[in-house]
Amino acid sequence: MTATDWTTQAQGVGQYAQVNGINLYYETQGSGQPLILLHGGLGSGEMFGPVLPALAARRQVIAVDLQGHGRTADIDRPLDVWAMADDIAALIDHLGLDKPDLVGYSLGGGVALRAAVRYPAKVGRLVAASAHIRSDAIYPEMRAQQGQVSGAAAEFMKDTPMYQLYQRVAPRPEDFPRLLDKIGELMANGFDLTEEVRSLRVPTLIVAGDADMAPPSHYVEVFNLLDGGLRDGGWMGEGRPKGGHALAILPGLTHYNIFSSPLFAAATLAFVDEQQG
């Protein structure tokens, strides 16, 4: 992975929205039906630089920097995925958007998923990429690595794209160790969204790389919870999931490059542009 995967030459041409006591940064590109784009942990909206032109060619893309990430300064609040979902719902209201689609990767996928669970009336379609729904779904060695994330690791991350992007765009670059501490605490918390996913009322596309942080079988399990993969789809699609849900396992991709892949952009656009029956 190179730094170019994580950054663009955009000079922060976005705006801030005061919501839930946080000054949330977002950038808007393109025109059409709104699509809110949510980045992964330790990243920012700029992670999507390679796929943004394709998305913005068809949609008005609103790329948000989540709490403590990118150009959104941290506040005195734990990094909680449900709270960040509340921020996105508040942003939808703040911008006066009519059921935008939510597209999130990794942490952003978890935020988008929770926003769709808690605020189904505010969301059009949902794309959750590389977002596992149980903390024990990821490979044990990854769980162990996540348990070691803390501010003490900041010194060892200075050559990483995450650190370099943060130093370039963050309002307080010195906050990086604090962000690592909060991310570490977040990842140490166990969670299981099985019942929440089962009750999802928003048409949802589950996306993962074929060599992601959790095995492909986990994403199939999520699809099963959404009434998918349980029977033949039928000549006319009559056997497809009743809620309009779908699954995409993308070939040749990992957790660390899926967000910048043209396959991710293509699968996302094919799903959000699908006419609802």
Rank of each mutant, 00 (worst) to 15 (best):
R114W: 02
K122V: 03
R125F: 06
V127L: 05
G124C: 09
A128C: 13
Q145Y: 12
G124A: 10
Q145D: 11
I133P: 02
Q146M: 10
A115Y: 00
A137N: 12
A153S: 11
R134Y: 06
D159H: 10
S135M: 07
Q146R: 15
Y163I: 04
G151K: 07
R114E: 02
S130M: 09
L126R: 01
E141Y: 15
K122H: 08
Q148A: 14
A121H: 15
D159S: 09
A115V: 02
M162T: 02
D159K: 08
A131I: 04
L126T: 01
E141A: 14
V123Q: 01
R118M: 11
I138R: 14
S150W: 10
E141P: 00
D136H: 14
A116E: 05
S135L: 07
L126N: 01
A128F: 00
E155R: 02
I133W: 06
G124F: 10
V149P: 00
S150C: 09
A144Q: 13
G147M: 15
V149H: 00
G151F: 08
M157N: 08
M142V: 13
G124M: 04
V127H: 00
V117S: 12
H132V: 05
Y163V: 02
P120R: 07
P120S: 10
Q164Y: 05
V117D: 01
A121Q: 15
A116H: 04
A121C: 02
R143M: 09
D159M: 13
L126C: 06
A115C: 15
S130T: 13
K122I: 06
L126Y: 04
P161E: 04
A144E: 13
M157R: 01
T160Q: 09
D136F: 08
M157K: 04
